[in-house]
Design a binder for these strands. Structure first.
Lengths: 323, 323
DNA sequence: GCGTTTTTTGAAATCGATTGCAAAGACTGC
DNA sequence: GCAGTCTTTGCAATCGATTTCAAAAAACGC
């Protein structure tokens, strides 16, 4: 920067100001400095800038990686969310530091903002880490969580209204005069359990639960095939915890010759990109990932500014298609 | 750090050394300093460290995001690769800065290492940016590319041997005495085109090409259904450019009652996690994403050290399963 | 017990920016 | 023409570490 200053015939502070487009520098001087900087391919040193500004314009995104045994974050929905968060951050000129659960966890998250040099953290998925989050919040670390709501959270959770989503599906099935309802999904996934809960509450009858080991197409298809081959009576209304699982179940139904939607209504969750292209187009509960990303980022920024942000329950709606 | 020094009764440099586990500090002093630092929850300021060390231990991962129209990076394979790269970097204590093509591109990649404060870049997918990469290499930016090989590259490309993969499939089909071969895949994806090319070369007969708009399950299923309903004679050997596409085609074949593998052999590419769980288990060409991640990172580190790294062509092998 | 070598420690410089404050220069109004 | 205001500019301090180099302390040999 000193060199650029010399070449432009000004002092270092003036160069710094010019590069920040500060109103303190006259337009003429600014133009000249920018020109010199461009010609010499000069860009400010990010590390020095971060140090002096005490701010990095970088956000950590903490997720579990797909290669892990449980295969979390493998769903197209997660991809969508990830992409939209990254985009919302890019709009605000923030960079994204990707952290796996483990790599981030070294020495606890408390020190992570200092240690990794980020201004804040976005957690994708909460999986029973409430206590951890509580103490993080108490320590004053700016962060937000994508996940299922809980009324007693002392930190900001952004998530869609899973209970409502489940209820909408139950209502739809009831209006179709369906009798034997089934829910398909894994155990231990809080958001999906809320969907099931909302569904069960609004259904007001028995809901058969078909458990699957994970969120994959294949696991759902297999579980459904097993169920269909068990000899038990076939459900006429199936609510799957995600679109991918719904598609797996649909494959099984098709293979066993069960007509959809004639003999069985099927509804997914997420409205992932594939849902509308599926044949037949999948009826599903929409989660707006674009809005989700934008709001997560907005709330995090607010928290970083020092104003604690309230949790957000995003609306969901039923997208009725062919199944 | 000054405070910790005072509390431990030593000077700042000694604290710095102790935290780096430098042999210059006596064990007794080190223990004491670490204890004080721990008790007060002190961690070094990453920004200051980066500035002084002239190194950030952070790598930029440049990818296209899944929400984009073309829907690139939506395949489980990409996920696997991403996760494994992140892991390989974590092992070396490197952090990952996620960049989309656009956000990274501001002002060209030349200044990105300085501008984003990263030590190096990993590009996932090359999609015709050869010239750009050439000039990057000339500018001395440390980076590596995951993608298809080209003999004239002046930079490090790591990728699996797509030509070999294609050849292996052709050989297999020939040994099964198949007659009518078909290749399924999109146009303009260099790696997949290489697979097709290797396949065609080793097949030594006509290869029907079925084009699909993208890499998705749905697109492949639809394309295949169209083809099967066209009245033209059905192929007895199908090579799909990825597992996801193979599964889409398999769904179509099943729906049209074509027995696999009796009437038609099917082979995918990637050996993605779903391939082995698929019913029937999918025959496919394996790409070792774990090794890919490790080698990408190793080569990048080498490049950062100042030693230009040679490209790597990773071996692929045919995994024969039920299709 | 004294010179030498080895091990520890600390003073001061440095990394490359940003910013508070004061001063210089340009513009007012009268 | 001069005091007062407004716009630009630059000096110097600062962000929080790391590292070089020299000095102090400890260990050693004889």
């Amino acid at each position: 920067m000193d060199d650029i200053a010399r070449l432009a015939g000004v002092s270092k502070p003036t160069v710094s100001r010019a590069l920040q487009d500060s109103p303190l520098v006259s337009d003429e001087t600014k133009r000249r400095i920018l020109e010199v900087a461009r010609r010499h391919g000069y860009v400010v040193n990010r590390s020095a800038q971060n140090l002096r500004r005490r701010r990095t314009d970088t956000i950590a995104l903490v997720i579990d990686f797909p290669h892990l045994p449980e295969n979390r974050l493998s769903d197209p929905f997660h991809f969508e969310l990830l992409g939209n968060i990254a985009n919302a951050l890019a709009v605000r000129q923030q960079d994204v530091l990707l952290c796996s659960e483990q790599s981030a966890h070294q020495g606890g998250f408390e020190q992570m903002t200092a240690n990794k040099g980020v201004d804040g953290i976005i957690f994708l998925g909460q999986s029973g880490r409430h206590e951890e989050f509580r103490s993080l919040a108490k320590a004053g670390v700016p962060f937000v969580v994508w996940g299922a709501h809980r009324s007693d959270a002392s930190y900001c959770i952004v998530g869609s209204d899973n209970l409502l989503g489940g209820r909408l599906v139950a209502q739809r099935f009831r209006s179709l005069k369906r009798k034997r309802a089934m829910f398909l999904g894994p155990r231990g996934h809080i958001e999906i359990e809320q969907r099931q809960q909302g569904f069960a509450e609004a259904w007001s009858g028995a809901v058969e639960e078909l458990e699957v080991p994970d969120l994959s197409f294949v696991a759902s298809r297999n579980a459904m095939l097993n169920r269909l081959d068990s000899g038990k009576s076939v459900p006429d209304a199936l609510f799957a915890g995600s679109d991918t699982m719904a598609m797996g179940a649909l494959a099984a139904l098709r293979e066993r010759g069960i007509e959809v939607p004639e003999s069985c209504s099927v509804c997914g969750y997420d409205d992932s990109p594939a849902a509308i292209h599926h044949a037949p187009p999948l009826t599903t509960v929409r989660q707006d990932t674009r809005m989700a990303g934008a709001i997560l980022v907005e709330r995090l920024m607010q928290t970083i500014q020092g104003t604690p942000a309230a949790s957000v329950l995003l609306p969901t709606d039923l997208v009725i298609r062919a199944t």
